[in-house]
């Protein structure tokens, strides 16, 4: 694991204007992430987790503070450059999966590559198939979202996040809609990807899930409360194996 800094946040503030009121979602957040880390961001609802993740994912720009992604100052970039950055360096996984309905798993995974001019149709397909195989869905290429379980849909979404070979994966409550067995299997997948060198930032409010990561950042009311490495990191695979075999989803 190298110590190269992939994310650098310095005093990030984000304010929303709601009519005459100003909502301060982030009130000065500072931390660094090194390449290859698996970070969970924890905090109660409304603590600013999603706002922070959107900032990390270049979907949103901070009102104040500097954010360097891979050494690039994001605040200086325009809309199109941000889009390009999202396309090349970031993979998103959402709580609600956000797959295109009535569109096959393969085509859903191909989607990010459509916005990359340099990739040919053949390469696009090959890479999408490879990504789906990496999430153990090699046999579900033609299935549409409504033919897949929640856990499977989230795997497709992860494959979609992987397909453009991003430097990091951002997940916002990616297990929030899943039962515990599916959650563990998704976490096992994330751990596997992390072992292969992917940097992961995972937002959750479940301490249970956070225990699978290497470091946890606690947010409260728009500030970092606690930032600590996980001493006894659990293996999701082992937890999954230890579950009783009754429910078979």
């Amino acid at each position: 694991m190298s110590n190269q800094k992939i994310l650098e946040l310095k005093d990030i503030k984000r304010e929303f204007r709601m009519g005459s009121e100003i909502v301060r979602a982030l009130k000065g957040v500072t931390f660094d992430v090194a390449a290859g880390e698996f970070i969970t961001i924890m905090g109660s609802s409304g603590s600013g987790k999603t706002t922070l993740l959107n900032t990390l994912g270049c979907l949103d720009k901070p009102t104040e503070g500097t954010y360097l992604l891979d050494g690039v100052d994001v605040r200086k970039l325009g809309r199109n450059e941000l889009a390009r950055l999202r396309n090349h360096k970031i993979g998103f996984v959402f709580q609600a999966y956000n797959l295109l309905p009535r569109t096959s798993a393969l085509e859903n995974v191909e989607l990010p590559l459509l916005y990359n001019q340099t990739i040919s149709a053949k390469e696009r397909k090959d890479r999408a198939v490879a990504a789906l195989e990496a999430v153990n869905l090699g046999d579900r290429l033609d299935h549409t979202p409504n033919q897949l379980s929640g856990g499977q849909q989230q795997r497709v979404a992860i494959a979609r996040a992987l397909v453009n070979e991003p430097v990091m994966i951002l997940a916002d409550e990616a297990t929030g809609n899943l039962d515990s067995r599916s959650s563990y299997s998704i976490m096992a997948l994330f751990q596997e990807l992390n072992a292969k060198g992917k940097t992961i930032v995972f937002v959750t409010h479940e301490p249970d899930i956070a225990s699978f990561s290497s470091r946890t950042i606690m947010l409260r009311d728009g500030r970092v409360m606690k930032d600590s490495a996980n001493e006894n990191r659990k293996s999701a695979k082992e937890v999954l194996a230890a579950l009783p075999q009754t429910e078979d989803y």
Binding site: G57, L59, R79, N80, A83, R84, R86, N87, H88, F92, N98, L100, L111, P112, Y115, N116, R160, N164
Partner: peptide, 15 residues
């Protein structure tokens, strides 16, 4: 929602 998703994975306004 689809538009938001496309944008989040790298679609530009012009796309």
């Amino acid at each position: 929602k689809e538009i938001g998703l496309r944008m989040s994975i790298g679609a530009r306004g012009i796309d």
